[in-house]
Simulated assay, not measured.
Amino acid sequence: MAPISPTPLRVLDGSTVTTLEDIDGPVVIRGLQDEWRARELWTVDHFRHQYGGLRVPVREYPAGSEYEYALSEDGLADFLDYWEKSQADHSLARDRRYLAEWNFVRDCPGLLDDFSIPAIFSDDWIDRLPEQVRFGRMWIFFGEPGCSTGLHCDTFSTSAWLAVLDGSKELRLVTPEAGRALRADDSLWSERTHDEVLRKSAGPLYEVTLRAGDTLYIPGDWYHEVRNPERNLMLTANFVEERKLLSFLAQFETRLTEPLSVLRQARNAQVRAWAGGDGRHDELAREEFRARQLDWVRAMTSDLREYERALLEWDAPGAGATEAPNGAR
């Protein structure tokens, strides 16, 4: 097998970056954390004294497992006592623990005062959704050496920014096209994966080691894999860019409607049963009720037909299909 030679990511100066529109792949941006109070304030002692009584989500990695884990909960102070003493175990000879995806906004929103979302990531289309369907998308990670997050792309075509405040993290990334060719058990650190899949797919294999002060931008649909070479503290968030908006909405709507489809099937079966019976069901016997239900159904299907027409017209001659909408690329 040929040796793997990853391509390093570009590094940008945060003072020169004003928009994501001209960035077409992952990049490291430096300087975005310079004004954050969290850089100095977020120490083990600070978290232990201020929030030590909170229960936090912990991944439990058994000995010998690089990616598989069970989820548990622990007190933050107890986890930090363990984390502070943990040593690198890249041989995976012992059990390991990883405080990952702690939704701190819900548990201790005061931490939001210690940093500011970088301006280039602040235009988040999730903020424009109705309040009842918005969801949490900002987390703190305390990484233990030897813990990994396997190959994945973030849900719903969301983009992400990862800000390392202490320690270091290693990532490898591939384009959406290359990622779709990968299999469930592939690893971006595997020579077999590199030779059997990545050499035949579009785009190179990228690699970066993030250190304190670095912020990584990952566009939506890029596949990546994460390793912790040493203890680290990371703040990360997902957001939706305009150029990924339709993909996000389609996937998010599917997730919302999956449980509804079960209810709809049950409703439809019951209506058919009543219609095939004596026809005396109280609600269906009322003409006003049936009319309201038909209006509701027609309104729903009208929205879908309108979307269908818009998609078809986009490819029509003279419809401007040769240029992507809103500057997307």
Rank of each mutant, 00 (worst) to 15 (best):
L263A: 11
F115T: 04
R305H: 12
H49G: 07
T43E: 04
C108T: 08
Q50G: 09
T19Q: 08
L233V: 13
A93Y: 00
A181I: 03
Y67T: 15
L233S: 03
D154P: 07
Y67A: 06
L198T: 00
H46D: 12
C147A: 13
V44R: 10
A285V: 02
C108N: 01
L216T: 01
L263Y: 10
E283I: 03
E191K: 04
D214G: 05
A299C: 00
R180A: 12
V58P: 00
M234C: 15
K85F: 08
S116W: 03
D34F: 00
A237Y: 01
L246I: 13
L165D: 04
E84T: 03
R10S: 15
T7C: 08
A275V: 07
L245C: 08
D34E: 12
D81H: 10
T236Q: 06
S201W: 05
A273E: 11
A266N: 13
K200N: 11
P259K: 01
G320I: 09
R305K: 13
E40M: 06
D78Q: 13
G276E: 12
V164W: 01
E144L: 02
A178R: 02
Q87I: 04
Q251A: 15
H90Y: 08
W102G: 10
L246Y: 08
P6H: 02
T193G: 00
I126Q: 10
L76V: 03
W102F: 08
Q87F: 03
G276T: 00
F156C: 07
I117E: 06
D214T: 05
T155R: 12
S116I: 05
L165P: 02
D303Y: 09
Y307F: 14
L76Y: 00
L171G: 00
P26N: 04
F47E: 03
T43P: 05
I29C: 02
V174T: 05
E66K: 14
G136K: 09
W102Y: 01
L12T: 04
D45H: 05
A328H: 12
S157E: 08
S187C: 12
A93W: 00
S247D: 15
R192S: 14
E323R: 15
E225F: 06
T43I: 05
N103I: 10
L12G: 06
V11T: 15
G167W: 04
R264C: 12
D89I: 06
A321T: 07
G318H: 06
K244L: 14
S157H: 07
G31R: 03
F121T: 07
F135M: 10
Y67S: 07
D282V: 10
N268A: 14
A178G: 01
L41A: 14
L205Q: 00
E40Q: 14
H46C: 02
G276S: 10
